[in-house]
């Protein structure tokens, strides 16, 4: 057994293990102790201002009057209600949102008071449209139209290009946002023979400058304008579509329902167009936004789609 020849004066707790293992009893640093006591004081101050002690299903809410916070909330029915409560993160967030709305109001008012055409001429105002419009678009439109409004073939149109089924003027776009759209094309599988559908599909491909069978296309052109298929009723004599109905322009290079850009072979392209003619469409539905966005918001969003996305006419 080694002899304990410890000569220093460090205090120990008196506990000894294995004869020589001791527990030192050094004092805590003074700054640490004081910091510890200060946290006690902090908690008391905290109870005065914030929700703290749980009591059953309830909790202490701090001293009323010392920590009250007032904000304006919009009820689901659109009614504005002023609420006063104790400090909490949600109410503080609401106050900030109120301040933000107040700060944005003058810009919204400015847009609302201007004719559509003049907004784009005001470069400083357009910066506001760009940033607020982007947020509104992302929150409301991007789930279908995708980020950057690039659309998705077979699902939603690209809003950045210059093709507009329902018209690309400010008024058209505003109307689309306010009332929504309901695109429809009947299926032709009961009406036409498979060969006739092939002929029509070839004609549609020809009009867009895609590879096609010239003979079948010629027959398709006749069929297009015949009473049998009656395509021209909706798509028009020149196949350029009708804005009133939202029927597609079949002569341009832009595809919404038939995935031509994604089809590698000529056969695949033909099959895509045939699929659309055969089955028709009932998915061209856009909901109305008039109940969800205010008229000022819709106007700003219209300018954003027309000018910031850049496809407007």
């Amino acid at each position: 057994m080694s002899q304990d020849n410890n000569t220093n004066t460090t205090k120990t707790t008196g506990h000894v293990w294995d004869n020589d293992l001791q527990e030192l009893d050094n004092p805590l640093p003074r700054w640490w102790i004081w910091g510890f006591y200060i946290t006690f004081l902090f908690t008391i101050v905290y109870w005065l201002f914030y929700p703290a002690w749980p009591i059953g299903n309830n909790y202490t809410k701090g001293v009323p009057g010392l920590n009250s916070i007032t904000y304006t909330a919009t009820q689901p029915n659109g009614e504005q209600v002023e609420k006063t409560t104790h400090w909490n993160m949600r109410s503080k967030f609401m106050v900030e949102m109120n301040e933000l709305q107040e700060a944005q109001k003058k810009w919204f008012d400015k847009v609302a008071a201007m004719p559509f055409e003049d907004v784009q001429k005001d470069a400083e105002l357009m910066q506001f449209v760009n940033s607020v419009g982007k947020t509104m678009f992302t929150d409301n439109c991007a789930p279908c139209h995708q980020q950057g409004a690039q659309g998705k073939i077979g699902f939603s149109p690209n809003l950045a290009d210059d093709h507009w089924q329902y018209g690309g003027t400010y008024q058209n776009i505003e109307e689309t946002i306010v009332a929504g759209r309901n695109g429809y094309m009947p299926p032709f599988k009961e009406v036409l023979q498979d060969e006739q559908i092939t002929q029509l599909a070839n004609y549609v491909l020809e009009m867009s400058g895609e590879p096609h069978d010239a003979e079948a296309s010629k027959a398709g052109a006749a069929l297009f304008r015949s009473e049998t298929a009656a395509c021209f009723y909706c798509h028009g004599e020149n196949a350029q579509g009708k804005i009133q109905m939202g029927s597609a322009n079949l002569t341009d290079k832009i595809w919404l329902w038939a995935d031509i850009p994604g089809s590698k072979t000529d056969a695949a392209k033909l099959a895509e167009v045939k699929r659309v003619i055969t089955g028709g469409l009932n998915r061209g539905v856009m909901p109305a936004w008039s109940g969800r966005l205010s008229p000022a918001q819709i106007k700003l969003l219209t300018v954003y789609v027309h000018d910031s996305l850049g496809g407007g006419k």
């Binding site: 995708q146 980020q147 690039q150 690209n158 210059d162 290079k253 832009i254 496809g311």
Partner: peptide, 13 residues
């Protein structure tokens, strides 16, 4: 987003 846009006449934006 998107990196380029094809217009109806086949040109690129």
């Amino acid at each position: 987003q998107p990196l380029f846009i094809m217009l109806s006449d086949g040109s690129y934006r």
